[in-house]
Design a protein around this nucleic acid. Structure first.
Lengths: 235, 235
DNA sequence: CCAAAAGTGTTGACACTACACCCATGA
DNA sequence: TCATGGGTGTAGTGTCAACACTTTTGG
């Protein structure tokens, strides 16, 4: 180390979480209204300050819970942002996290004073500070991850249909897939268990419901076989 | 945001860089001896504190230069580490960076008082704090990246042979490749220009030297085609 | 002349893309 | 009965892994 601890400048550290959701049709992003003086009408990521005795992961979880009530979400760390003037009020280093959740499981979000709200990912409002850059970074990482790992299931309800899953991947990558190739690929992964039920109310024929095979998907999460065909050059 | 800026705790922020090197035979890691009171004999990553008016990237570059003299290195941000007790002296959040350089280009490193030294990657000494964890994280990222992008060339000298490049990839992944498949894959990428010279002094026959085709490799760096065969399940 | 490393081609298996028609049902 | 979305199969192509022998030359 170059210098002693004593004379170093300290700095605010914040955690900002990018929460992706899926409602069966479109990719969504969760945002809150920041409750402080200026920028009252600007939407923002779920952000807050790192406290004395918590780790980064713990802080990100605590902040998310305080702002939205969401608990036990799998958050993954992304990039740190630290330009000296990124927060005009005071210098802050911000570390981003992201998560994928199923919108239907968490639709009661008007929690506290923060008015968390789901936005269509392709119609985001203006965002605070450099939060747009954080979101761009996160979607890139999500695409990359989704191309090689079966992360999509985290966004689905417990029981889901293949066409629903396809819609999700189409939303993530913003392209369309051939449904024959898509279902072949997904089913051949062996991660899904076909149920004896069909989805009601959406299509007339009804699509079979599937469920994630937990045991197999644990294994698959750690490997890096690529998961979605014709994606390798898009990530 | 949950609370106002004023009453938040500030925190030391440090940058730690993991510098990988290759000497034609083995994968190397650059370490320095930390010059402060306790842990005098512990090797450490290139670390230092974030200052008032610099961005994270700028700080990482400055620190690397101060400790080793290395300049104009391409550093890429990795993960942040922030357990409350990770640095026993005082709470510090550390953001890691990594770089790939050719050992031969930077062998005059006994710079200042820091005694930067290259270690064989498979024979690292005990490291400071959680630096071992940082290194594990970085090698995983390097493998992932190297499997899909032609990053290996950054570690090679300007002119190099295919067998040398193969040794590098074998060092990174710690496995062996079939040399026919390896050279076919590398050459078919079109990134290399064959020179009219052979390497002298190593083998009796001598291997042809190649050079990176800069124009093509710029393009390839941004795409995500996977680069090294039979690697997809290893990353 | 021999040891040591360089260089080179083929084949079988598998995986991907492209593509079109029938099925089941609710309205 | 018809409109809507669900479900399925194949042929062609390309890419990957596996595999062994010849070449060059310094000692």
């Amino acid at each position: 180390m170059l210098e002693l601890y004593g004379r170093q400048t300290k700095c605010l550290v914040s955690l900002d979480s990018i929460i992706f959701g899926f409602d069966g049709e479109k990719l969504k992003l969760l945002l809150v209204k920041r409750g402080i003086e200026e920028s009252k009408d600007i939407w923002s990521l779920m952000g807050g300050w790192l406290k004395e005795d918590e780790s980064l992961d713990e802080a990100a979880h605590r902040i998310l819970k305080d702002l939205t009530g969401l608990e036990n979400i799998y958050l993954e760390q992304l990039t740190s942002f630290g330009k000296p003037d990124r927060d005009p009020v005071e210098r802050t280093v911000s570390i981003t996290y992201y998560a994928l959740i199923n919108v239907a499981d968490y639709d009661n979000l008007d929690y506290g004073d923060y008015h968390a709200k789901w936005f269509d990912f392709d119609q985001l409002p203006e965002l605070l500070f450099d939060h747009k850059e954080m979101v761009d970074n996160a979607i890139a990482r999500l695409r990359n991850k989704a191309a090689f790992h079966p992360v999509g299931f985290e966004l689905m309800p417990e029981k889901f249909t293949i066409p629903q899953l396809q819609k999700l991947y189409e939303a993530i990558f913003d392209i369309e897939f051939d449904k024959r190739n898509f279902s072949r690929r997904i089913l051949s992964s062996g991660l899904l268990t076909k149920l004896d039920e069909k989805q009601k109310g959406f299509s007339k024929k009804g699509a079979f419901l599937y469920q994630l095979n937990e045991a197999k998907s644990k294994k698959a999460a750690s490997s890096n076989l690529y998961f979605i065909p014709s994606i390798d050059r898009l990530v």
